[in-house]
Amino acid sequence: MRSGGKPEAMGDMPGMDMGDGMMSDKDMKGLTSMKGAEFDKMFAQMMIEHHNGAINMAKDEQKNGQNADAKKMAGDIVTGQSAEVKQLQSILDRL
């Protein structure tokens, strides 16, 4: 959090970069200009990338983490986000 109790932008957080599946402002602006199937496809692709970023970070925590509770939570993230990626990919395949 920044001083004054305001949350930081995700891109400002240590360890969070666009390679971790975070969408850039440019990505989000591009999405807002889309409609219909074009929007649906891009949204699904972006969410798959976003979830894969979370999965990679969680796997890193499982491998390198020190806190048992955090490592358990990371396992739950891998399981949940992997299921969501499968569901999103199924939707994307139908578009």
Rank of each mutant, 00 (worst) to 15 (best):
2 R>T: 09
4 G>N: 13
4 G>I: 05
6 K>L: 12
8 E>S: 10
9 A>V: 09
11 G>A: 14
11 G>R: 14
12 D>Y: 11
13 M>C: 04
14 P>I: 04
15 G>Q: 06
16 M>P: 01
16 M>Y: 11
17 D>P: 02
23 M>I: 02
25 D>I: 02
28 M>E: 12
30 G>W: 06
31 L>G: 07
35 K>V: 10
36 G>N: 10
36 G>M: 09
37 A>N: 15
37 A>I: 12
39 F>V: 11
40 D>M: 00
42 M>E: 15
42 M>N: 11
44 A>Q: 14
44 A>F: 01
44 A>D: 13
45 Q>H: 05
46 M>N: 14
46 M>R: 13
47 M>D: 04
49 E>H: 10
50 H>C: 02
51 H>I: 05
51 H>N: 08
52 N>H: 12
52 N>L: 03
53 G>W: 08
54 A>W: 13
55 I>V: 14
58 A>Q: 06
61 E>A: 10
64 N>F: 04
64 N>S: 12
65 G>S: 05
65 G>C: 05
69 D>V: 02
71 K>D: 08
72 K>T: 13
72 K>R: 15
74 A>F: 04
74 A>H: 01
77 I>L: 05
77 I>T: 12
79 T>I: 01
84 E>L: 02
84 E>I: 00
85 V>H: 04
87 Q>D: 12
88 L>G: 12
89 Q>W: 01
93 D>Q: 07
94 R>L: 00
94 R>G: 07
95 L>E: 15
